[in-house]
Design a protein around this nucleic acid. Structure first.
Length: 487
RNA sequence: GCCUCAUUAGCUCAGUCGGUUAGAGCGGCGGACUGUUAAUCCGUAGGUCCUAGGUUCAAGUCCUAGAUGAGGCGCCA
């Protein structure tokens, strides 16, 4: 009979402290049962399994038969030095208790390598694999480090709304939020949808960015950041877009574009360093997985360096900073442009850079993260600060900043904000953004305005970079994308 | 939204020029095994060849449409 009068010890603790001779109770899920004798037990606390050695003399035939891949079991026994070679310590089980059976004929997971596509269809179970265990432990570490980074620097965590009434930001297609009955929408006499009868008395959407609200906070609290879910209803079908993702958006008063770039670079290096120091085992698993995955690819598509080296490279090297105008010059004279290899040839100043151009700059030309600044005003948002005209620059630019990472592309997008009321109003008129809807935003410029700056970091893209997962749908627990909202 | 590729056993995939009874590895199941490490060994079951049409004496194989998945592009974080 299983006596459950002991405190459970986590496997991470047994493996790190190696308390030889101590009696422990461990609980977890069976990852392998070899030789009718050796259970590889994993409880999620760490990447590694604990070997539990079963002594058949202490175990009835029936329980032995229930030790199956995936079953939840508890094991009580002494921690001893292992006689085998794969591990230093193991638990000599005197008692085994089956919490939950796992029928192998029905269980979708198998004790073998399974494709990421298959696991994506079983996302509710994929946490139980080595790869996804590692991904989600690293994701947690990164989220924790984000708060630690900002807290250490005196930033305040601001919770901006998830439901918003402003649809004037132009950040993308929005998801409508309503309680109106879709099958029988109330109409006004002139046939329009009668939003006065809706929950908020007006049209509302899920937020596409907390930036405008964060600016309100920054112009009083000084330094704030948001870290929350963000929604874009674009039908993007790529390895780096989600309909629901998490975004980190710091906003800093009395800061200019350079301060902004400094902050973003320091943050990315801090977060990368944090995972190297706190997630060594998980990163090793992910590095080995990536190596295995890339074996199937042609040489030129493989990563130039192993995962951890790539992360260390970001920590140890200054990001390359250059202006859009300088980037255009480099691209114009680049071999692929001259040889007509770009699908979109670089011809003149003013066009937005395509993925292929960003990739060339980051992966071929500089071979390191790149901060691109001072984009043409025409291709950037209304709230970005208009630069003073500069010699050698063909048109008006804004104090924008994009950080490009190898393999992922744009990981950060930010700017110094336009703090001058008249300039901002002119920009809004030029871009057909209604002033009335953003009166509250403009009030910050009317009353005690000051220079300020901020950026947005796509959290999943950062997790992608650090874990080496190539599809963004594999770094969020339950991905939302066009045609899929399962689980 | 556009382009390319794929869909065959539970999973990963092979399947020749259209030809007769569709294969492998892993996994499952049964058995053996008290030092295994992707355990091993013996045995065994398992198929609506994505769907609907079409061409043909004959279709897993060719054609058309659709569904689903993957990758790329655009939009961006």
């Amino acid at each position: 009979m299983f006596t459950n009068n002991m405190k459970r010890t986590k496997i991470a603790e047994v493996l790190s402290k190696e308390p030889i001779g101590q009696e422990v109770l461990v609980k977890g899920w069976v990852r392998a049962f070899r030789n009718n004798q050796f259970i590889a037990l994993n409880d999620g606390s760490c990447a590694r399994h604990l070997q539990v050695v079963v002594n058949p003399e202490h175990l009835d035939e029936q329980t032995l038969h229930r030790i199956k891949f995936g079953a939840a079991v508890g094991a009580k026994g002494q921690v001893v030095q292992s006689l085998g070679k794969g591990q230093r310590v193991e638990v000599e089980a005197r008692e085994i208790f089956i919490y939950g059976d796992c029928n192998p004929e029905q269980y979708p997971l198998q004790p073998k390598k399974q494709s990421l596509e298959f696991l994506r269809e079983h996302a509710h179970l994929r946490f139980r694999t080595n790869t996804f265990g590692a991904v989600f432990r690293v994701r947690h570490a990164l989220a924790y480090a984000v708060h630690q980074f900002f807290h250490e620097r005196g930033f305040f965590y601001l919770h901006t709304p998830i439901i918003t009434a402003s649809d004037a930001e132009g950040a993308g297609e929005m998801f409508r939020v309503t309680t109106l009955p879709l099958e029988n929408v109330p109409r006004t006499p002139d046939g329009q949808v009668d939003y006065q009868q809706d929950f908020f008395g007006r049209p509302t959407n899920l937020t596409v960015s907390g930036q405008l609200e964060a600016e309100l906070g920054a112009l009083a609290l000084g330094e704030v950041y948001t870290f929350g879910p963000t929604f874009r209803a674009e039908k993007s079908n790529t390895t780096r877009h989600l309909a629901e993702f998490w975004m980190i958006e710091p906003e800093v008063a009395f800061a200019d574009l350079e301060d902004n770039a400094d902050l973003a670079e320091a943050m990315l290096q801090y977060l990368c360093r944090y995972t190297l120091e706190h997630c060594a085992e998980d990163l090793q698993i992910l590095e080995e997985r990536l190596l295995e995955e890339e074996k199937a690819k042609p040489q030129e598509q493989r990563s130039p360096m192993p995962l951890r080296e790539k992360i260390r490279f970001v920590v140890d090297n200054r990001f390359e900073r250059l202006t859009y105008t300088e980037a255009i010059e480099i691209l114009k004279h680049s071999p692929p442009n001259k040889k007509g290899k770009f699908q979109f040839p670089i011809e003149s100043w003013g066009a937005d850079l395509q993925s292929e151009h960003e990739r060339y700059l980051v992966e071929k030309h500089f071979r390191k993260p790149v901060i691109l600044t001072h984009y043409p005003a025409g291709i950037k948002a209304f709230y970005m600060r208009l630069d003073d005209p500069k010699e050698g620059v063909p048109g008006p630019t804004v104090a924008a900043m994009d950080i490009l990472f190898p393999g992922i592309g744009e990981i950060v997008g930010g700017s110094q904000r336009e703090e001058r009321l008249e300039v901002l109003q002119q920009r809004m008129r030029d871009m057909h953004i209604p002033e009335e809807e953003l009166y509250w935003f403009l009030d910050t410029r009317r009353f005690g305005t000051c220079p300020h700056a901020g950026f947005g970091l796509g959290f999943e893209r950062l997790v992608q970079f650090v874990t080496g997962m190539s599809n963004i749908r594999d770094v969020i627990a339950f991905p939302r994308y066009p045609g899929n909202a399962e689980f």
